[in-house]
């Protein structure tokens, strides 16, 4: 199976690789997946007082599509409000990266990671956690 050009591009030059200080109040961290399943994503967001995501970082253990999905997600998250970020659907990622059906789970994991990071931020700042979408795996 050949990878799409966009997957290759994100894989070769991943955006926003790194770590934010998870102890900061304005940083939300999502850690999803499991090593046994062959993919783990850690996605972090930094949010300002206006509820806008000013920075996003990721690290991913997984195949090329998982790495590309999380790289793309951080790219999209920067500058978005929390509400806009919540509207990102895994199918948007599938479309943008032209993921084949067997790799759709990578996009689901990225969506889970976004929502999980937002929840972490919400809970840290005294808001209740949103219901997580049921993982499609």
């Amino acid at each position: 199976m050949a990878y799409s050009e966009k997957v290759m591009e994100h894989y070769t030059n991943p955006r926003n690789v790194g770590t934010l200080n998870k102890d900061n109040k304005n940083v939300g961290t999502g850690l999803v997946g499991a090593p046994e399943c062959g993919d783990v994503m850690r996605l972090q967001i930094e949010v300002n007082d206006d509820n806008v995501i000013t920075d996003a970082k990721f690290k991913t253990f997984g195949c090329g599509s998982a790495i590309a999905s999380s790289s793309l997600a951080t790219e999209w998250l920067k500058g978005k409000s929390i509400d806009e970020a919540l509207a990102i659907d895994n199918m948007d990622i599938v479309e943008e990266l032209a993921l084949p059906p067997v790799k759709i789970h990578c996009s689901v994991l990225a969506e889970d990671a976004i929502k999980s990071a937002i929840n972490d931020y919400r809970v840290k700042n005294g808001m209740e956690a949103l219901a997580m979408p049921k993982s499609h795996h």
Partner: peptide, 24 residues
């Protein structure tokens, strides 16, 4: 490994088997 959250945790001395991984 530079991209891997697991490698980072390993380097920080975190025991990966103690983490409750989300089932999927």
């Amino acid at each position: 490994r530079n991209l891997s959250p697991l490698w980072e945790m390993f380097k920080e001395g975190i025991d990966l088997s103690k983490i409750e991984w989300a089932e999927h």
